[in-house]
Each structure stands twice: as structure tokens, then as C-alpha cells.
Design a protein around this nucleic acid. Sequence first.
DNA 1: GCCACATTTTACCAAACGGTTAAATCAAAT
DNA 2: ATTTGATTTAACCGTTTGGTAAAATGTGGC
Lengths: 209, 209
Amino acid sequence: MAKTDNIQEPAVDTTEQRIFEAAREVFTQKGMDGAKMQEIADRAGINKALLHYYYRSKEKLYEMVARAIVGKMLPTIRQLLESEQAFEDKIRGFIDFYIDIIGRNPFIPLFVITEINKHPERFFETILPKDLPRPEVFFSQVEAEVAAGRIRPIAPQHLLVNMISMCIFPFVAKPMIRILLGMSPGEIRLFLEERKREVTAFMLAGLRP
Amino acid sequence: MAKTDNIQEPAVDTTEQRIFEAAREVFTQKGMDGAKMQEIADRAGINKALLHYYYRSKEKLYEMVARAIVGKMLPTIRQLLESEQAFEDKIRGFIDFYIDIIGRNPFIPLFVITEINKHPERFFETILPKDLPRPEVFFSQVEAEVAAGRIRPIAPQHLLVNMISMCIFPFVAKPMIRILLGMSPGEIRLFLEERKREVTAFMLAGLRP
DNA sequence: GCCACATTTTACCAAACGGTTAAATCAAAT
DNA sequence: ATTTGATTTAACCGTTTGGTAAAATGTGGC
């Protein structure tokens, strides 16, 4: 809700942080291969020499940026999955918070997906932290709801993937959807805002016994 | 169902087609920036000189590959959206066929999404054909079902995006989901196969009045 | 004034890469 | 045997790019 829980939040405006922020922008938008060190330097308002003065190599800088992004997303997901709320509240909270975060950082999912697909080894060995979110808590919660007859029988893994898909994909494929549905930039923005309500409604409807 | 309706199907094995096929593989997996002409030549089993002998430039080759991919996907979507089946059959058919095609060409969605995000101008002006699928037929079908009380009230655009999201996203984010759910390569393959049944069930459940 | 550090300037290097050229080789058709 | 087109070889070019070196300049604190 607050603008300050954006993924990027430079505490103070040091040159080092301006560089890092510039690198984050360029890397997320152009990927490792498409990003140029010169452009990062330009966007940070410094020159290439100073860029290498702070960050040794492109590879290292990229890894730091990727780690920062992934390392900030995972705890959020973990928190959403492991929270102790009642089931329906949890679903509502997950969708609400998740769409909110992605709406404010729409480049992140595509960046992570691209990175993981193009350089799996580097991602799993260097970027991904060791302590991953444990969906087990959520899964047993789903199974309990099913057993109690409060929701329709469904495999908890598919339930989770359905929910995540409907939250993330529209942002990842925003321009594609925009064209397919013939929407103006204003209309697609509105459409994506509606999805908080819409996905929640669809999830709960799909789970009715 | 048949292996022959794969998106890649070299009719005869000419050198020109082997090059094109190699380019398709490299471009879809590494993107425009990450792809190297040398690698395309290597994978086609020829040398760089011959590569330029058949295809003038990297840019042109890339555009041809992209056009071929997009040009083959769109008519399929169009057909699925504009078919004249009864509503539930249409939903079933869409999910079934769509997941089937993506399962056999899992690199395509990410390729299209990346291309559209990194080079929107080129995509819309050079690659995307002019005649797009018209979802209006499908939309009025949804509205008719809602009016007749046969499905729960829902905006047809959100319905369509929900369905497409649940079909495509798991393939795009396959390695991510694999790690999150702690699955082996065999398990994730099974999981993705299950989704045909699962997404259909979830869609129909979510639409019950 | 001097020191430590940040920053700029400039020049440079080596490698990678897209693309070209020209001559040589190969193979099948005539 | 000759021609024709496909293919290779190998050298080469210009540009981009990541990265380095070194000297000069700026700047704030002591």
C-alpha cells in the first residue's frame, strides 16, 4: 500500500547505490546479454571507470543485482504461504499482497523467469538462497479444508499454481494481452487493477464444494 | 496428438531449412542478444560464410524466425476462440489443445513475451501479422451464458485471461515451480500433464452459477 | 597546506562478434 | 569434360564491448 515498500529503496543516495540502482534497472529491462556497462554508467550519471572502481565486473554486478531481487521476493512469498490466518483470509491476503507487489515491480517476474531459463546453473548455485519458502504449511491447510468439506477436492499444488499463474502472468504478458483485447494503455492499467478483486472472486468460486 | 503438428516441421532436409531450424532453436533459447551467428552455424553443421550466403543478416534471420513462430501460433488461438462449439465444449477444447501445443513447444511463450517486452516497435511493426484473433465471438458467448444464468457473472476478458494464465504460466515458470514445490524432473513432467484435467476442472468449477 | 579518497579524463587493450571477400573444393547434372 | 551451384577455408575488416591504466582534478577533513 505504502509507496515505500517498493523493491527498490535506496536508503541514502551514495554513488555506490546510484550505480546499483541503475544496474538493477538496466539488467531487469534488457537482461544480462542486452545490458551494456556503458548504459549503466550513463544512467547512474557517472563514467565507466568509476563503475569498475565500485563493481569489479559485469558478472559480479549482475549477480549482486539478481541476488538482491530474488532475496527480497522469496521472504515475501514465504510469509504469505506460512502465515497462520484462516484459509479464506490467507487466499485473499496472498492475492491482494502478491498482485500489489508485482504491480509495483512488473519487471521482476520476467527477469527471474528469464534468468532461471537461460542460466539455470548460475541461478541455483549462486543466486538462489538456500532457505526456500516451504509450502507444506499451506498444503496441509488446503488438505484440511478439503477433508472438512469446506472446499472442493483439489490437489494443493495445482491450487497454488493456479493462483500464482493468475496473479503473475497478466503482468508478464501485459503487452500481449493489451493487443489481444484491443486495450489502450489506460484500459490495460485499469484491467490489471481489477484483477485483485477478480482473481480473488474466481479462486473462491473455483473452490466452493 | 500426432508428433507432426509440432511447430517445427521441416518438410525436406535442405541446408536452408537446417539453418532456419538451428536459428529457431538458438533464438528461442538465448534471445536476440544472447544468440551468436557462430552457434547457429555450428548447430546447423555449416560455417559462418554459408550462413550469410543464405541469410543476409542476423536481424533478418531473427525476424524470419520470429514471424514464423508468431504466425503459426496466432491462427491456432484464433481458431480456438472463434470456433462455433457450445460453451463448455469450447472451454474444454481450448484448454486441452492449448496446453497440448505449449507442452510440445515450451520455449515459445517465453520467446514471444521477451521479444514483445524488449523490442515492442519491431514486434508490432515487423513481426505481428495484421489480422489478429478476434475474441469478440467468445466474449458474446460468455455474456450469453451469464445472461442465461448458466454460469456465474464474470467479465469475459478476465475469464479469458484467467484461462490463458493457468495454461501458459506453469510452462513458462517451470523451473521456478519445480524448485518451489520440490519436484524431480519426472514429477514436474507428470504435474504439467495433469494440468489439462486440472485447469479444465478449475475453470468449470469457477464458473458454476 | 596536506592527506585520503572520490571522480573524471583519456587513452588504450584484447576479445568477441557481425559481416565480407576471394579463392579453392566438391558434387551432381549436362 | 565442362559447367553450375553448393560448400569450405581462411583471412580479413570495422565495431562494440568489457575491462584496465594512469594521470589529473576535485573535495572535504585534519
